[in-house]
């Protein structure tokens, strides 16, 4: 069990992580979602003891990372696949890690084989492509057969086949009862690879739940076309709905359900010609959840990224 306990991390003026408090449960893939600069990597660095928290702590089965004498047997982490000595071979890199944690050396060849880099195991990692480095990073994470796995933006640099492979792989790790915690800044990626999602923005917790829950909770807009759009707009405005004219007779209403809009129109005696709930897409949900917390967001909404 991975527990983030009122964790904060400040770098100078920047509050990179601000009182995060959640648990990551075994047996499912948990997504850690947030826009760029929202504190995902910082949280992961604190979990594995690279950075000291300013407040709070992160614990693994009740202990902080640096309390483990053989941490690779408890937690496997892939944070930065390129953070390797470029002049050492892949196999020697893993041998050094295995030695430090008393992991049998035969395990090195097993994991190299498993991630598909056995054929280049004797080559210097400096020459590896990002995808190959990612695979080697996954091999290091698996080396100690840990119960908890952390991956920071693992699909970066992988080709579509690699992405599918890694998704299936996360699922199988979770099925074996492990805790799998995967970060991403892409909702669409999380939607297909994670069972449970934790959303953060500017270092703060925003929400958590399954993909279905997150989409259900976020009310989409309602399109309504009626006999008197101006008056309906006033009526709905009084109910705290936000109306935007869509065309001469139509309004896009947010903040109210289609039922509420229909009932309000009936009691105001305005004839309705059309009433359509517009379902929020996953990206819409993510955008609306994190809109207030964008660090490096595209504020000019008209420009598609």
């Amino acid at each position: 069990m991975l527990k983030i306990d009122h964790l904060s991390k400040r770098y100078g003026e920047t509050m990179a992580v601000d009182d995060l408090d959640f648990e990551v449960t075994p047996g499912v893939v948990t997504g850690f979602l947030g826009p760029n600069g929202s504190g995902k990597s910082t949280t992961m660095r604190v979990i594995i003891g690279l950075d000291r928290p300013t407040h709070g702590r992160a614990t693994i089965n009740g202990k902080t990372y640096d309390e483990f004498k053989a941490p690779l047997r408890e937690v496997g982490a892939l944070l930065d696949a390129k953070a390797l000595d470029p002049s050492r071979s892949a196999r020697n890199h893993l041998r050094a890690l295995a030695t430090a944690n008393r992991i049998p050396i035969k395990r090195v060849d097993e994991v190299l084989e498993f991630v598909g880099v056995a054929s280049v195991a004797h080559k210097k990692v400096g020459g590896f492509s990002l995808g190959m480095s990612q695979r080697l990073g996954i091999a290091s994470a698996l080396l100690g057969d840990p119960g908890i796995l952390l991956f920071d933006e693992p699909v970066n640099g992988l080709d579509p086949e690699g992405i599918r492979w890694i998704r299936d792989f996360f699922r199988s790790l979770a099925k074996e009862g492990r805790t799998v915690f995967v970060s991403s800044h892409l909702m669409s990626e999380m939607a297909v690879s994670a069972d449970q999602i934790i959303v953060i923005g500017r270092g703060k917790f925003i929400t958590s739940g399954t993909v279905a829950e997150l989409t259900a909770n976020a009310t989409g807009t309602v399109y309504v076309r009626c006999a008197d759009a101006t008056r309906l707009g006033e009526v709905l405005g009084a109910l705290e709905g936000v109306c935007e004219p869509a065309n001469e007779q139509g309004l896009n209403v947010s903040g109210l359900s289609s039922d509420q809009v229909g009932e309000a129109a009936l009691s105001a005696g305005i004839a309705i010609y059309e009433l359509t709930p517009q379902r929020a897409s996953l990206e819409d949900v993510f955008m609306s959840l994190t809109a207030d917390s964008l660090e490096y967001g595209h504020h000019d909404a008209g420009v598609a990224p």
């Binding site: 660095r45 640096d66 982490a77 390797l84 000595d85 890690l97 944690n101 290091s140």
Partner: peptide, 18 residues
């Protein structure tokens, strides 16, 4: 210092947090 230059220090400290 070579470990700092490549970032390998982070992998090292992950294996040896003491």
């Amino acid at each position: 210092t070579a470990e700092y230059a490549s970032g390998a220090i982070r992998t090292t400290l992950t294996a040896v947090p003491r």
